[in-house]
Amino acid sequence: MVGRRWWTPWLWLAPALVLLGVFLVYPVVDTIRRSFLDERSKNFVGFDNYQFIIDNPQPLVSDTHSALLNNVMWLTLFTVITVCLGLILAVLTGRVRYEAVAKSTIFIPMAVSFVAASVIWRFMYEFNTEIGTVNATVTSLGGEPTAWLQDTGAPQTWLTQRGPDTLPQPIQINNLALILVGVWMWTGFAMVVLSAGLKGISTEVLEAARVDGANEWQIFRRIIVPILSPTIVVVATTLVIQGLKKFDLVWVMTGGRFKTDVVATLFYKEAFRIGDFGVGAALAVVLLLWVLPVMVIGIRRFQFQEETR
């Protein structure tokens, strides 16, 4: 027999490793390197670029504080709303007769190009009531049109207390409008994955609970949710990462203007629009450090599931 040489597995791995190296490892290392260099990546500036993010010296053109807070908004609201809606829809669609039709309808936004969906929603939110469906509905019910994508005000008066002077108000009408579009796109995904998990719960368990006299709410709360919790975590981590790296939707709908910038749009703007590669790279590194723990949790969880299978 022609023996297996030690390098045989490496040979088969090589294409993947080369691709990973060129398109992942090298850019990451280079981004970290550039985050310590000046705007043209020539001179070493230490932690100046990170200081820029903390000090926020140019609040008009690159509001770093607002971008970080908006990312927190995306992270929490987007994830929580999408998971909850997805779970409710998974349970409900499992009980209707036209399950396939209902699920496909909810899943369709996921199949639309995100940029196309963003363009569509720009029209939906348009201020001019002859174009904007949302404002046309509002005015036909007797309300005043709202500039959904430009209004930085808080949606409710009880939320209008401002934070400290240097911090922007995180809960803005336009941020919520953007996040709702994200929810619209991703609910289908959450529903489908959770629904698959739901189908995996054996009917004996549910029937046993019913025999014991549990009502539907108790079954949902005490049995379905705990059994589904590993799946929920997987869905939630995916959504958290999506929320953190959100770019397309914000860029197409507002261009990050009117205080809707998130870290991903801001680093693109800094690096490529303004031409400051230092600050751009530093923002990218901040985003990477932020995503990293979430990814680790996600992968751990996945491995744990694989082992217990």
Binding site: Q58, L60, V61, Q150, T152, R257, F258, R273, I274, D276
Partner: peptide, 17 residues
């Protein structure tokens, strides 16, 4: 051009509001 141009754009929208 550059950052100051974008800052002026943003200045206009903020000034109006």
């Amino acid at each position: 051009g550059g950052a100051i141009q974008l800052a002026e754009f943003d200045g206009v929208t903020q000034y109006l509001a």
